Computed example of a mutant assay.
Amino acid sequence: MTFSNKSCLVLATIFMVGILISSQQVSSQECGGALQGLMNNCAPFVGKMGPQTDPSQACCDAVKAADVPCVCQHLPPGIELIVSLEKVVYVAKFCGKTLPGGTKCGSYTIPPSSAFEIEE
């Protein structure tokens, strides 16, 4: 049985949602509940598999409503196995919420060249 890229993405997304929900209910509360909206709307754009693509408007709306630095500080353990933090930074920047250079998002450090202040 072979899986298409789409099937693998769906499985990875389901796996990611399971990890996030089961391991860090507190982080969602600490970050204003934004984590659920980010998971629902941005998962296809931040998965490790597949190319980097521009996020949807729904994803950008979720990013704009989120406290991105808080989410970065409270990423669940193991999330980096299925989520590309480089893509997370790209999506945040595309949507107008970029973290300052040197900021840690999980184990990923934001490069200085991709940074500017977050507009809250």
Rank of each mutant, 00 (worst) to 15 (best):
T109R: 08
K64L: 11
C59V: 04
M16W: 09
G50N: 06
S114I: 15
P76A: 10
G102F: 01
P55T: 06
S22L: 09
G33W: 11
C95K: 04
Y90H: 15
C42S: 05
V17N: 14
S27K: 07
K104G: 11
A62T: 00
D61W: 00
D61Y: 00
K97Q: 07
L9E: 14
G33T: 06
L99W: 05
V63W: 03
N41H: 05
S114P: 13
T109K: 07
S84K: 03
A43Q: 01
S4W: 04
T109F: 12
I110R: 03
L9F: 14
K93I: 02
L85D: 08
P44H: 01
L75P: 09
G33K: 04
C31D: 08
Y108L: 00
V17Y: 15
V17W: 15
V83A: 11
G18H: 11
E86P: 04
I118W: 10
D61E: 08
C95T: 01
S4V: 02
I19G: 12
V17Q: 15
S84Y: 15
S27N: 08
K93V: 01
N41M: 03
S28R: 07
K104R: 14
C31R: 07
V71E: 05
E80R: 07
F94Q: 11
V63Y: 05
G18W: 12
L38N: 02
G101N: 11
T103A: 07
N41S: 02
L99F: 04
E86L: 10
P112C: 13
M39R: 09
T13F: 10
G50R: 06
V83W: 00
L81D: 07
K104E: 04
C95V: 01
G37I: 01
S7Q: 15
M16Q: 14
C60A: 04
V71G: 03
S113L: 09
A34N: 05
E86T: 02
M1V: 15
C105V: 04
Y108G: 00
C8D: 15
V63L: 03
G106F: 03
P76N: 04
V17M: 14
E119T: 08
I82W: 10
S23N: 11
T98M: 03
G96P: 00
L99V: 00
L75E: 11
N41F: 02
E86N: 09
A66K: 02
T13P: 08
K6F: 15
V68I: 10
F3N: 09
T98R: 02
G102A: 03
V63M: 05
